[in-house]
Amino acid sequence: MTIRERLRKFRWWHELGLVILIISLLVAAGTLMPRFLDIKSQLLLSRHIWEMAILALGMTLIIITGGIDLSVGAAMGLCAVAFGMTFQYTGSLALSCVAAMLTGGLGGAVNGVLISKIKVHPLIVTLATYAAFRGIAEGLSQGVSYSQFGEAFSQIARGKWFGVPIPAYLFLALAVGFAVFLSKTPTGRFLYAIGHNERAARFSGIRVDRIKFWLYATSGMLAGLATVIYISRFNTAKADAGTGFELDVITAVVVGGTSIFGGRGNIAGTVLGLLLIHETRLFVGRYWQVDELKSIIIGALLIASILLYRILSPKKGRE
């Protein structure tokens, strides 16, 4: 194969771009602030991202099918309240974790039913459940915060195995699982088909509704899992858990190269997107110590990355 042919077959331009961006960010950060590259502190501060990272896996799959889930942050609030109330009544942490996951799954299933059976647009369904989940969480808990889950429980988010934070193992396992599912299983490939052309996918016998239902239910369950880590990290279960997460997660997925219209994207891109956003936020926060700058830069990064991709993309007018 000639170089030219190899280049033409190369499918990872977006990921390559992200890697270059991340490396240049790290180089710049390391020059300006040598201690920024210290591995130990990087590992420690990585705990700021794990909940978001777990949510981003489900979100990637959903966006690949052309959908969206705005309710993940609010679902975390609901899961946190379920966790706190279960703990209050039973005193069992294991049961509380199960309750959080089940609540998340149930919330996701509600989204799934409305989207796949009643055929409401995902943006509208999850905009509605975004308000409803958070509201129900506030009403049920009356705004109270549940606390005192013990030192051992906080080790889930703060503990380490072989110097690496425990949530990292969990995330890696999940990420590999999702990546294999997406690229190697027929159902995973169907997601792209749905995102490209849902009607065609339907006609070719793909059980679109069932797949969609399970995607949103999974996203809800992941919200439950993220909530457990979140509660462990802050030792607090409250209705305001996960506020604003939905936008951060969508930003990471989109920066990672998943098309918001569906049909394109992968887990590797999402992981890189998460890394870029996490490191950017960390660097801006640690170097300038101006919180406002973070949102300005992340917002600009989101627009600029997609703009750049659009301008440079060899296939124009793909929509």
Partner: peptide, 9 residues
């Protein structure tokens, strides 16, 4: 909490 962690580092 995250800012406290960054400052500590």
């Amino acid at each position: 909490a995250e800012m406290i962690e960054s400052w500590t580092v």
